[in-house]
């Protein structure tokens, strides 16, 4: 027969009905022969009933409103945000869009020299944004490959052990 100490580890699983049949048998055999452990098992059952007496506290009425307000303060993501995974990427794309609009509005007639100069400036800047090497080194894009990585590489998305959610830098 098992010793009291060995049974103690199995006792909780036995009482909450999560022990397998072999463990159940061992514990039952011990309880039938050991009055101390038998009493302990009885007491644990009663104890769990006692612990159930503690009523739940309800969150205060303003709880939901408060968390929603805090979430509303979080950096928002507009329609562009839902197309791309990172807010800063969305910002970069918005800049590109704004630049395109600005270019489209450039005067096509009139002061030819001025227009050419403006076009040159615009295209020069656009070149940077269209340059893949620059884009790929652009800080805002650094997290994008992570999003596309295979699931096993992000198997543990969050490490609450150090209490910080990863890669959420906004």
């Amino acid at each position: 027969m098992k010793k009291c100490e060995d049974v103690s580890k199995q006792l909780i699983a036995y009482l909450d009905r999560r022990a397998n049949s072999a463990e159940r048998h061992e514990v039952e055999e011990h309880l039938a022969a050991c009055s101390a452990c038998h009493q302990r098992a009885e007491d644990f059952r009663k104890l769990w009933g006692v612990l159930d007496e503690v009523p739940l506290v309800e969150p205060s009425l303003g709880f939901d409103a408060r968390i929603r307000a805090r979430i509303a303060e979080e950096p928002r993501r507009g329609w562009l945000g839902w197309l791309v995974p990172q807010p800063r990427l969305a910002f970069a794309m918005a800049l590109l869009l704004a630049l395109s609009v600005w270019m489209a509005k450039l005067p096509r007639e009139g002061n030819v020299a001025g227009t050419e100069q403006q076009d040159f400036e615009a295209i020069k800047d656009l070149g940077v944004l269209e340059n893949y090497d620059v884009l790929s080194k652009f800080d805002a894009l650094s997290e994008v490959p992570v999003e596309a990585a295979p699931a096993d590489q992000q198997a543990q998305p969050v490490n609450p052990a150090n209490d910080q959610q990863p890669a959420t830098e906004e």
Binding site: F63, I67, P85, Q154, Q165, P166
Partner: peptide, 20 residues
Amino acid sequence: LAQEVFLRVYRARKQYSPSA
């Protein structure tokens, strides 16, 4: 603390993967 938990869940939503 409960507010903080929910806020962290919200902030981590983009990194969530159902591994656990």
